[in-house]
Nucleic acid binder design. Structure first.
Lengths: 187, 187
DNA sequence: CTCCGCCGTTCCGTTTACGGAACGGCACGG
DNA sequence: CCGTGCCGTTCCGTAAACGGAACGGCGGAG
């Protein structure tokens, strides 16, 4: 693109930092990840340091090898450890549900404490969570995501998943359950 | 990468289809989107047809212009279900309001038609809108923003602002009004 | 019917991400 | 003390995405 660094580059740099973070978390070297992902060491090095503008294919190869979805390195807010507390509480208040039951909207409140577990839903169900206050860690049990105020999480909920408040503050969020559309081809 | 098409290429093709879908939904031409996003027509054409492997920077430029987060074209499951309501215009349903009145949460539904106008609120009030389905154009009357499913808009609402549904589909969103309060203002 | 404007695709020279190899740095063992 | 091995970075030729321009197709105006 233009010679002057566009603001989008900040996003690319963020991606690099998250990939390095995920890699070091797993205790594997740059060389090894590059080999596993089938990319050059130069590519991975340049990507992690934010001096390259990776192709989509490259990102796929690397994130797949790290075992995380592409969105994990593109939009994850900030890393936060899973907090285990003493008090318990996750309450749901149904807000809206259309008659065809294609989606349901809930008001969610999670108090600090141990993670709340939820079993797998029927195939194809997607969960959308919008956080309004507090920091929420939620998603599939093996790869939960983190979001702060204004943050947005989404995952396919046909696997067991968890909800946990990170930090001392209660989490207020909206939860949207979307069911696969039965029929009605439209648009 | 290797000569043989890796399975990840399917993801890239999906991205192209979603971008074309989002573009045609908005009724803008390939040439125009390319110009707005600051990329070449050849780039956008090849991307939409899945014959190119775009750089991250390119995707940022295009999705930003479409008013959707990058994740919307990378992992969006399928088109949002179309839910037809009876009411015309914009309806608000209060969902939550804390006792100190620092913020209020609404469920919002905007039907296709002329834009809804809202006068200025008291100084310092911020509006947060999270779109769940449809495409919403909202914000200050002189500079409205656009967001699709999963999109998020925010502006300081001490100026007159508008809401309008883009396209044929109803817009479902959550609306958060935050009043000035010395507690944890996000960035 | 012809001209004109805009559409999306294709051609082409330039820019740049790509992988392989070479490099310096550090820890360990002979 | 100096090899040996692995680390992450840098160099470099190649492959491919990039933007600009040219192309054919289509619909409306004259």
């Amino acid at each position: 693109m233009t010679a002057a660094a566009p603001p989008d580059d900040r996003g690319a740099r963020e991606v690099g930092r998250r990939i390095r973070s995920l890699r070091t978390e797993r205790g594997i070297s740059l060389s090894e990840l590059a080999r596993l992902a089938g990319v050059g060491k130069a590519t991975l090095s340049g990507l992690e340091n934010g001096v390259r503008n990776p192709r989509l294919e490259t990102l796929y190869a690397i994130t797949a090898q790290l075992g995380v979805p592409l969105t994990a390195v593109l939009s994850a807010p900030e890393q936060a450890p899973t907090v285990r507390g003493a008090a318990v509480g996750a309450t749901l208040l149904e807000v809206f549900s259309d008659r065809e039951a294609t989606y349901e909207l809930y008001r969610m409140c999670v108090t600090p404490g141990p993670a709340q577990l939820s079993p797998a839903h029927s195939s194809g169900v997607t969960e959308h969570v919008t956080v309004f206050s507090g920091v929420l860690r939620a998603g599939p049990v093996d790869a939960p995501l983190t979001a702060g105020p204004g943050g947005y999480l989404r995952w396919v909920s046909d696997v067991p998943h968890t909800y946990a408040a990170v930090g001392e503050e209660e989490v207020h969020a909206s939860l949207l359950l979307r069911y696969p559309r039965p029929s009605t081809p439209d648009s």
